[in-house]
Amino acid sequence: MKLVFILQSIYRIGGTEKATIDQANLISDSTNNEVHIISLYQEVESEHRVNHYISDKIKVHFLHKKIVLLKYSDTIYNLVDLIYKKKTVSLIKSLNPTLCIFTSVKLMTASLPCPAILMAHFRFSHFISGKVTRFYLDKYHKLFERVIFLTEEDMRSYQSHYKSGNGEYIFNYCHVTARMKSDFSNKRIAYIGRIDNSQKQLSHALEIIAGLIRDNVFNGWRFDLYGTGNDVELIKNKIKSLELCDSVNFMGKYNSLDSVLEKTDLLILTSRFEGLPLSLIEGALSGIPLISYNCSPGISDIIENGYNGFIIEQDNKDEFRARVSELILNNEKLKKFGENSFSLAQRKFSKEVILQKWNSVLVSCELISKDKGKHR
């Protein structure tokens, strides 16, 4: 099969981009399929550029070589995507793929030369909350051979809402070395992801750390923030205003995720909403305990409450602080939760498990493609 993934930019910060590229890498490196990626934009402002690993087997095509992402603005670039929709479809047709895999429903059209899949990287309720995405999903959902969600709950919500049978769910595959990494002597808590306070609520995380310091339980511990984004200065100012400069490290971009995880004893997430958080899966595959707000149906797929971490009621900072305190004051429990994280990840998020799900979908779509070819 020849597969084409369509992304806004292979250099863009964000879980959608990273997860999609990781899935493309998995399929390219583990199967005989020919994999292409269409990246709508090539140039990205340097402070917002991330060089995701892409397999040498994958051919990348840039639709707009001279358009620069001046700011991290979904509204502007979603509009540009729609304006150049015909050009995107033209490039797809020139590649003549067996299957197209979209990450945005807005680029779908009835004139595609092959079957198509939509990968929905946010929870279903959030995915249809926007007027534009809701309009296009209403219009095109029947044209997709599969609409793939990140959790079973979201898949069921989609199928119930649209009375449709083309829903599927596949967990994100993470291109990270699966092994126990930390020796739990680092005394480091970490956040890994985009520095976007409106979604990630990093101000909550900082307030939780400030509370632990007031409780006199954070002695010797530090909180590391890894990532970049539009709210870097806002978060740096928040660190100063809470007088956390001696306890919080703003680490920025990182070159090696494995080296970051080796230094981390506990991974936290305080988001307002998520799809299936890659950072938590990466943490689980590295044998790290996890604490997160209940910001997505996918959280319960990654964290078994009281087994490998804690799921916290949304925006309950007091409960969050109490659970962090419980783990950093009990090193044996911290280690046990880490071991449990690794065990859970092997059962749910291993390369073999994710590849089996993708193979099943691809075989089904290939049969559909061949059948349509006979009737053209």
Score class of each variant (00 low, 15 high):
76 I>L: 15
95 L>P: 10
122 F>A: 08
81 D>W: 03
112 L>W: 11
108 M>A: 10
102 F>I: 07
134 R>P: 00
109 T>M: 13
111 S>P: 00
82 L>I: 10
102 F>S: 07
95 L>Q: 12
76 I>H: 15
128 I>H: 06
97 P>Q: 11
79 L>A: 13
131 K>M: 03
95 L>E: 06
112 L>E: 05
126 H>C: 00
112 L>F: 10
94 S>Y: 08
91 L>K: 10
93 K>N: 15
82 L>S: 01
98 T>P: 12
132 V>T: 11
113 P>S: 12
122 F>W: 00
119 M>R: 09
88 T>W: 02
127 F>E: 10
107 L>S: 05
139 K>M: 09
77 Y>I: 14
84 Y>W: 13
86 K>G: 08
120 A>H: 01
108 M>R: 12
104 S>D: 05
121 H>C: 02
103 T>Y: 11
135 F>T: 00
129 S>W: 01
89 V>Y: 04
135 F>E: 08
106 K>W: 06
110 A>S: 14
139 K>S: 05
75 T>W: 11
125 S>R: 13
123 R>L: 07
86 K>T: 03
141 H>W: 01
108 M>V: 02
120 A>R: 02
92 I>P: 13
76 I>R: 14
81 D>P: 03
124 F>D: 04
129 S>Q: 06
128 I>T: 09
86 K>V: 04
129 S>H: 10
120 A>N: 04
73 S>L: 08
105 V>A: 12
79 L>Y: 11
115 P>W: 07
123 R>G: 05
92 I>A: 15
89 V>E: 03
76 I>M: 12
102 F>L: 11
130 G>T: 06
91 L>F: 09
82 L>M: 12
84 Y>G: 03
92 I>G: 12
101 I>P: 13
80 V>L: 12
104 S>E: 14
116 A>S: 12
115 P>I: 09
124 F>G: 04
82 L>N: 06
79 L>K: 07
121 H>A: 07
119 M>S: 07
89 V>D: 04
136 Y>V: 00
126 H>Q: 10
141 H>D: 05
121 H>L: 03
108 M>E: 14
105 V>L: 15
128 I>A: 04
114 C>R: 02
98 T>K: 08
135 F>N: 01
